[in-house]
Design a protein around this nucleic acid. Structure first.
Lengths: 344, 344
DNA sequence: TTGAAAGCGCTAACAT
DNA sequence: ATGTTAGCGCTTTCAA
């Protein structure tokens, strides 16, 4: 393990001063002779010199990395989102550190701190927390936060940017779609409703019911205390079990996301019901939804466009202001086999 | 945007010298009076002081983060692996930066460099590259690399650690399972075979054929030039199309991973075939494999154990030596509905 | 028990 | 065109 070469080593090897090397590093080539330039370049090469980003950061240089905190990398929706955002950022020559908060506020905080400590100045945060008060210190210190999948709240700190799909509209469309198919007993399957986006989705479901004169029925919304991601399987199973145990069973079901939808479908199948018995709509349109049988009707988030928007915001200087910018994207209902049947 | 407090600010506010503050920061409480200690603590609190990790790193402190580079976060297998590894690391008080190489060698290199620049000293790398020569400089500079899902190669640099499932054995078991079910025309579906693990899986398939006196048939291994992850859908579709066009069609199919297996199953279904016609075995046991219908028979990687092993290696000091440590884990065949039928 | 000073690798005035 | 110097925030001798 050879020691790492520093700017001094290079300077010595090239017979110049560190400043000359630094000038070269910072593309101020014009203030040195071509001949000197060459010598320095050679010395760098020979020592396989790489400037220390740590030292540069100490001097105030920004870290070009963007932090991306997601609730669960085990949920393919977040994997797709991360991949999408990275593709777009990569085209802009930027890199991403993906952090998994596991929906744990403490871990989320710790990652924000860690990223800050590493000099990262921009974070795209998909938080589980309705309140962002805990980010105050980081934002005061210059951290720029873009909230994703979290529509803005009144109490948000100034300077916060938000990019989100219109969750309420999406869930409304999903529910209305079922009503249009003749369903009146429509369940809502989800883990705990503790995030802004889930609240909005539930609200969309309720509005659609109300608009169609269908009374809201608690029994059709069997929530579990857990949030559920990779573990949505057992949660959905419990919910389905509860729903099938009702006297007046649902004929259709809106799931808070595709993981719950697919898990619920599997549970229904295990219970001997198929898509002809109970229709299912998901949310997110993860790649699997098109792959399974019956293919899942779901609400698609325009990930590509949202990624472009996030990158544009990240690149934009204006974000330093106190203006709370908020972008809301329209979701699309993707009709597939899981809701094909029209009833009475 | 309030300026960030430094150790000097705290010292001034508390009426002590920076060294005293530093001593406190580094739990050398014994060499100051309780009363002084309190004053400093208060000052820190008042200024919401956080020591700069950048400065500490410049002084040689290690960055406690572990870098995790995966080929594709859009593939749920890698999401599951990341989540699993993070869970274990978190229990040890460590954090993870997840980086998506997208199977691009250049991006992989860039992430190694970026992590190095940020002072990260340990990387768990799931590379697509058979050769690791490009990591030489980073390893020389003290970077400790643990290769995951890449069985060791003769040309590997000294000091490299490897943790992998036995891919050859897994594919062998998958193929043998089909033979035991009476199949003789068994296809192998994959994207390009350019990684060590895929080579091993193909080798396991071939060995199983050979051991059972089944001649290897090129036509049954329709490879595409792309590697395929999130985009395994179209690739698998092409492969299935080619296989169904053969005079002597396969009755079963081993897929290089679950993504290809599930995509191929969907393609088969679209072509009017079901599990009773053509059996399918996958590899990885991603959570969806148990959820779909028919549930997918697959080869499970013991992610939990592998995560524990990685963490143990990462925590272990011996890894600095030139010894090439390599851990190979046994896979398990998980039998489900997709291979339930026994033929003639 | 506390403080002063040097230095980690780099940059940018400011000399020369 | 090149070099000298001070300093980013922190730690760590060493001195008081």
């Amino acid at each position: 393990m050879r020691a790492i070469a520093t700017i001094k080593d290079v300077a010595r090897a090239a017979g110049v001063s560190p400043s000359t090397v630094s000038n070269l590093l910072n593309s101020r080539d014009h203030l040195m002779q071509p001949e000197t330039r060459q010598r320095v370049l050679l010395a760098m090469e020979a020592l396989s010199y790489r400037p220390s980003r740590v030292a540069r950061q100490l001097r105030g240089a920004p870290n070009p990395v963007l932090g991306l905190i997601v609730p669960s990398v085990a949920n393919p929706f977040w994997g797709s989102w991360a991949a999408q955002l990275e593709t777009v950022l990569h085209a802009h020559g930027r890199h991403v550190y993906l952090c998994n908060s596991d929906r744990d506020p403490e871990r989320e905080r710790a990652y924000v701190e860690q990223l800050r400590a590493d000099g990262v100045e921009q974070i795209v945060l998909s938080t589980s927390l309705p309140s962002l008060d805990h980010l105050g210190p980081a934002m005061d210190a210059g951290m720029r936060i873009i909230a994703f999948d979290r529509e803005p709240q009144d109490t948000d700190p100034p300077g916060l940017l938000s990019v989100s799909v219109d969750n309420e509209a999406g869930a409304h469309a999903a529910t209305q779609h079922l009503v249009d198919r003749g369903h009146r007993r429509i369940a809502f399957v989800s883990g705990a409703i503790r995030t802004v986006s889930r609240r909005r989705r539930l609200a969309g479901y309720r509005r659609a019911l109300a608009e169609n004169g269908i009374p809201f029925d608690d029994a059709l919304v069997p929530l579990s205390p857990e949030l559920g991601d990779a573990d949505s399987g057992p949660l959905a199973r419990q919910a389905v079990h509860a729903l099938l145990g009702l006297d007046h069973r649902p004929t259709a079901l809106v799931a808070v996301n595709d993981m719950f939808a697919l898990s619920a479908s599997a549970a229904l199948r295990d219970a001997g019901r198929d898509a002809a018995d109970i229709a299912v709509v998901g949310f997110d349109d993860i790649p699997f939804s098109a792959l399974v049988s019956p293919a899942l009707t779901t609400v698609r988030q325009p990930l590509r466009e949202m990624a472009e928007a996030v990158v544009a915001l990240a690149a934009d200087g204006t974000a330093g202001t106190d203006a709370r910018t908020s972008l809301l994207f329209a979701p699309t209902l993707v009709e597939r086999e899981s809701t094909a049947r029209r009833i009475s």
